[in-house]
Design a protein around this nucleic acid. Structure first.
Lengths: 253, 253
DNA sequence: CGCAGCCTTGAAGTAAATCAAGGATTGTGG
DNA sequence: CCACAATCCTTGATTTACTTCAAGGCTGCG
């Protein structure tokens, strides 16, 4: 199950067989969404939470004029709105970027988990706080970094998160977002994102094109963007592999 | 207990007598901090969490050069680092702005609560996610608002939060922060904050001076800053009183 | 008194938004 | 198969927002 891909690489640790069963037992439905659609509207009263199985989804707030600010980008294995379980309703919208498949978990079953499997409940709690940690880092990114470092920092985050679930080799990964999406993530305009993408390319730090990101100089990209993956709560062993990059595997073999 | 002042005004609802007892029973220590000191260092392994009883504290990340970005401002009744319970360590520093008093709760006792009082555990979970909701709103604020609206939005948030715990009358409240602090909150320089404070004063929206904030035109301040208090999960009755302002109390009486 | 911390203001420089136009690619209907 | 519309990317010119640098003022305190 995709959630285990996620937890495996985190400091909180893996699920036991029992816990995995309990979670699978909580799934009441599998759903599919078209690209660029709204999945959950802000304010709706919710009695279920969803786990992203495949695709790219986002959570965002909009201002009065309709300008969006993305507050999270979710990839396979991420819970989209587990926080809706204690909160009962969301303070933001959830939408898709690409076509998506999600698993639906009823809050009744999560309540049952809370009563019967406190260890698992604690792991779920951990997951919601991991999202919060990313939210905080996004605050830092927007508040203290200039546009080029902001974008670079985001690239580093996605690389690390996708690496953790086996969807990046540590230096290159698929990321189906437009420059407009990147602008909504980084608090910039798409015009400026375009110039910044070019800048990062000319600095030979990374290439961003056609839904693929290629990191040319990992060490320098990390330094340039003030990226410190601590907030992702990855196991130290995963961090080491990430640091070494994809070439290192053969060397140790 | 101060935590009940906090929960009373939220959608999650109050603590029962049993729950209150269990929480009080979890307190192992009361501690005091001097102004402008570090209370918890990033990365430290934690076996207890702290509840702010009195004073003003902050959570922040720093960049390579030591520039801080505040990611949260905590007031009486807020948990400072309840998220440390599932996370085990923090990804940011915690420090004081003013002199502070905190209550310390051991994680062992919280674990006991998780096993024995799942309803209370859910309320604690709720509290950590309320912080996350604020983190998200801070992302929105930094990403989509210009300096004057950013500061105004922050003022609206603090007014609402302090109102919820009885420390604002809805239009005027004490907030012992310097313009430098406001800069670290809003992702600006203190020089620019100074000009923006003047601007808000000249627009007759609010006064910020000597640790006191006075809102002159609440409705306009809310509109100007695109503030929507949904993310604070206040009871609708509290929101209504906030909207009406302090004059309304006498009118209904 | 003299220093420290905070606030204030001006001038100059830089970062990013805005406005405007055009190019490339893909899908669609005639 | 080609015209076209839609979407996304690219680039230049201009304007605006914010930072940086520099200086000085106010207040409280040892």
């Amino acid at each position: 199950m995709v959630i285990n891909d996620f937890l495996r690489s985190r400091t909180m640790g893996d699920l036991t067989a029992d816990e995995l069963l309990a979670l699978q037992d909580s799934i009441t439905d599998i759903r599919h969404f078209q690209p660029r659609t709204i999945a959950i509207k802000e304010g709706a009263h919710l009695t279920e939470s969803t786990l992203l199985i495949d695709g790219l989804m986002t959570r965002y707030s909009s201002d009065r004029k309709g300008n969006r600010q993305l507050v999270a980008l979710q990839v396979s294995g991420d819970f989209l709105d587990l926080h809706a379980y204690p909160l009962m309703r969301l303070d933001h919208d959830v939408g898709t970027l690409t076509a998506c498949e999600v698993a639906v978990l009823s809050h009744d079953r999560i309540w049952k988990i809370q009563k019967e499997l406190p260890e698992l409940a604690r792991k779920l709690w951990f997951l919601t706080l991991l999202d919060a940690a990313m939210n905080r880092e996004w605050v830092f990114r927007l508040g203290r970094l200039k546009a080029p470092a902001r974008l670079a920092h985001f690239i580093c985050e996605m690389n690390a998160r996708l690496f953790a679930v086996g969807k990046s080799d540590g230096r290159e990964f698929e990321l189906s977002v437009t420059q407009f999406d990147l602008a909504e993530i980084c608090g910039l305009t798409s015009v400026h994102v375009n110039r910044v993408v070019r800048q990062l390319r000319e600095m030979e730090l990374c290439l961003i094109r056609d839904g693929v990101v290629e990191i040319l100089n990992y060490r320098e990209l990390v330094r340039f963007s003030d990226f410190d993956p601590d907030y992702l709560y990855l196991k130290s062993e995963v961090l080491e592999r990430l640091d070494q990059g994809p070439g290192a595997v053969e060397q140790t073999a």
